[in-house]
Amino acid sequence: MLEGKFDEASLLKKVIDAMKDSVKLCNFNCTENGISVQAIDDSRVLLISLLIEAGSFEDYRCDRNIVLGLEMESLNKIIKNGNASDMLTLVAEDSPDALNLIFEDKRRDRIAEYSLKLMDIDQDFLKIEDMKFDAVVNMPSAEFAKICRDMKTLSESLQIIITKDSVKFNSEGDFGSGSVVIKSFTDLEKTEESVRITLEKPINLTFGAKYLNDIIKSTPLASQVTIKLCDKQPALFEYQLPSGYLRFYLAPKFED
């Protein structure tokens, strides 16, 4: 049996909000360590890897491994009915045909209970080896989101160029072009505002702006985003959860 209680529904609300526009159907794999998801978008360009470790829950138990096949839009409809500050408990039997979601407000005078039918989802599972990256950028997630939104107004592609101590986001469109350069920066008082660039080799990669604009829907989850890049390899965009992560592997564009 699975029983996982979040102190606040807001965490799962943000996670589902971040994923629902990229993937329609997901298997949520529940083990004693927590809940994990691997899902690939329909165009097979973006891979999402979610891990909500047991430590992200107030209480968590899962006696046997359970797979919950969930339709994200339906899950989102139910999740939106709960308040962000409600406690949220996920409950499923060992061979479940439904996931129960129980929202309790903190004064415990209101309990809302929902049941979501499960689906049999046949999905590929890709093996992600330990990847080697040539550049790692840690930066404020809100700043990364603004850059992705701004650059998408010009072109459907966004070029990321990293040299020693700066990252250049470059967009070349039909009616014009634009770029934003950010440099390494340490804010000792507000560390979440800092930009850190770790570089082994210079990077020049191009990505679909549409996918980057899906990834930035994770911005409310974490104040910083970590971007890991390697030439002609998928980029990794990572948002840390209190205990776990939401990762996006995005295939680049390049010439054959």
Binding site: V45, K127, E129, Q233, Y249, L250, K253, F254
Partner: peptide, 14 residues
Amino acid sequence: TLKQKSISNFFAKT
């Protein structure tokens, strides 16, 4: 011209 690659090109199925 640049071509969008598929994520499946980079990771093997298990």
